[in-house]
Design a protein around this nucleic acid. Structure first.
Length: 487
RNA sequence: GGUCUCUUGGCCGAGUGGCUAGGCACCGGUCUGCAAAACCGCCUACUCCGGUUCGAAUCCGGAAGAGACCUCCA
């Protein structure tokens, strides 16, 4: 098993990864709130933790990866008095709330599939775990860290902080928070502005609600993650992931809930991915500066100069380390598109190399370097740079400037299969997706063109090339004859 | 205002106390009937000002700029 070092947000240090019960690994990641179309920002954590999921499995861990779907509970505004987001959307569109949720769940899963993101082991929905959430509220009340007012239940942060440390994850001090807090409307039920809802009584017009010991209402929005992670991964588990923007208050509240309900902290390693920026600013729902994934794939957005394939998006995101901000621009995406093509073409060229009796390249080093990069906090940009080095070697060998034995050629194939395809999850989404008959037709056309070239009938051969180009088919002349690919 | 983070070449982005990733773009060359692809070469950066050091872009201090969180957000 490889020795992984990962950056733990709660200690702000890189730590050696030691699972609680190896070879089993429990990983929980905050998933989407399904009230809008998935955008580029959603792709970042999904791809980041897909990378981690893939790598942990690859090196032999048995991973249970849980990523929730929030289809209830996120409130429309900070006062905790607003409409449930799902419910509000539903009224606007005259649909059942669950119909809206289902629509966006389907959209989310469809686009995540296109990005070649593996489905998690479990994708629990908040609405399906109301019982567990009610149970957790009860536990927290029994422990004395929550109070009921008018059918709503709030977490008593000040009381919790007397015995525990509220703010340890995000580096906040409660007294500082209180000194700087804003006066918000509709907080009159709370004893303290930083108390947060565990259960909210539903108002008359609030469509989504469930019975509970306190009122017909709905769970507070931090609660689902604690309830579901506990249910599926146990009271303690290895990795909890999510976007950096969730650090406070969401993950802070999760810690408080776990400690209050179960008497202990549940998470060993907190991992947070950074944001994607656009013009230097966070791309987010609230700023309205997001570009949806569908818009990327179709190019149908004013900010985009062209469409970008799902694999281009995936490669773009993997080219930055997950803890760095990543700045979106058309130029950066175009660079990713071309870089990915070079990588994929390199893999293809590998098949055409003629083996030598000896090798002039140390192929093993590519493996050890790739492992070292992944083991160092999942450094995908370094892995990619090593793969590009390997591509350079491949082309050099193809041009007879380097030598590779057949065994080393096989190792290089393995390198790309393991790291490019299996771990980074890349694939060639521009690859020929045609049946055998199209292949046959193309081979016929290429043969005719080769005839023309042999006869120096360049008018004919160029016409074939140009006409195919108009159809988006690119001909590549190599020393071993012509090949073709879809643009 | 509070807490925290960042500042790398034309662009995107790694990284390390000295050996200065990678991709894209540009330019020059090889190859090609021409082109594309490929190959070779070229460009050589680390916001600013101090300090520590034989040596710092990398460590420390300060300044400026940008950003994140503090309210829903991936």
């Amino acid at each position: 098993m490889q020795d992984i070092v990962l950056y733990n947000t709660i200690t702000r240090k890189k730590e050696i990864f030691v699972p609680i019960k190896s070879p089993f690994v429990g990983m929980y990641v905050c998933g989407p709130t399904v009230y809008g179309d998935p955008h580029l920002g959603h792709a970042r954590p999904a791809i980041t933790f897909d990378l981690i999921f893939r790598y942990l499995k690859f090196i032999g861990y048995k991973v249970r990866y849980v990523r929730n779907i929030t289809d209830v509970g996120h409130l429309e505004n900070d006062a905790d008095e607003g409409d449930d987001k799902i419910a509000k959307k539903a009224r606007l569109e005259q649909l059942e709330p669950m119909e809206v949720a289902q629509y966006y769940i389907d959209r989310y899963q469809k686009f995540m599939d296109m990005l070649n993101i593996l489905r998690p082991s479990i994708e629990p929905r908040a609405s399906g775990h109301i019982i567990e959430q009610i149970d957790m509220v009860r536990k927290i009340i029994e422990a004395g860290f929550a109070y009921e007012v008018n059918g709503s239940v709030y977490f008593d942060v000040a009381k919790y902080n007397e015995k525990h440390n509220y703010g340890k994850l995000s580096g906040r001090v409660l007294d500082d928070l209180l000194a700087n807090t804003r006066e918000l409307e509709g907080q009159d039920e709370k004893r303290n502005p930083f108390d947060f809802a565990l259960w909210k009584k539903a108002s008359a017009e609030h469509i989504m609600h469930w019975p509970s010991p306190w009122s017909d209402g709905f769970p507070g929005w931090h609660l689902e993650c604690t309830a579901m992670s506990t249910k599926y991964l146990g009271e303690t588990f290895d990795i909890h992931g999510g976007g950096m923007d969730l650090l406070f208050p969401h993950h802070e509240c999760e810690i408080a809930q776990s400690v209050a309900a179960n008497g202990k902290e549940s998470v060993k390693y907190w991992l947070h991915n950074n944001m994607i920026t656009i013009n230097g600013q966070k791309m987010g729902k609230s700023l309205g500066n997001f570009i949806t994934l569908e818009e990327f794939f179709t190019g149908n957005n004013k900010a985009l100069t062209q469409a970008f394939s799902p694999m281009t998006i995936r490669f773009f995101i993997l080219q930055a380390h997950y803890r760095s901000t990543l700045d979106f621009s058309n130029e950066a995406l175009q660079a990713a598109e071309k870089g990915l093509k070079r990588l994929m073409d390199g893999m293809d060229t590998l098949k055409k190399i003629k083996p030598s009796d000896n090798s002039s390249v140390d192929v093993e080093k590519y493996f050890s370097d790739c492992y070292a990069a992944m083991n160092d906090d999942f450094n995908s940009p370094i892995v990619i740079s090593i793969l590009f080095d390997a591509v350079k070697t491949i082309y050099s060998a193809y041009d007879d400037k380097e030598k590779l034995t057949s065994a080393d050629i096989e190792k290089l194939k393995k390198l790309f299969e393991n790291f490019a395809l299996e771990i980074l999850g890349l694939n060639d989404d521009t690859a020929n997706q045609y049946s055998g008959s199209v292949d046959g037709l193309m081979n016929l056309i290429l043969a005719l063109r080769q005839n023309a070239r042999t006869n120096k009938d360049y008018a004919a051969s160029d016409k074939i090339r140009d006409e195919l180009a108009k159809l988006g088919i690119v001909i590549k002349d190599t020393k071993d004859g012509a090949s073709w690919s879809k643009e």
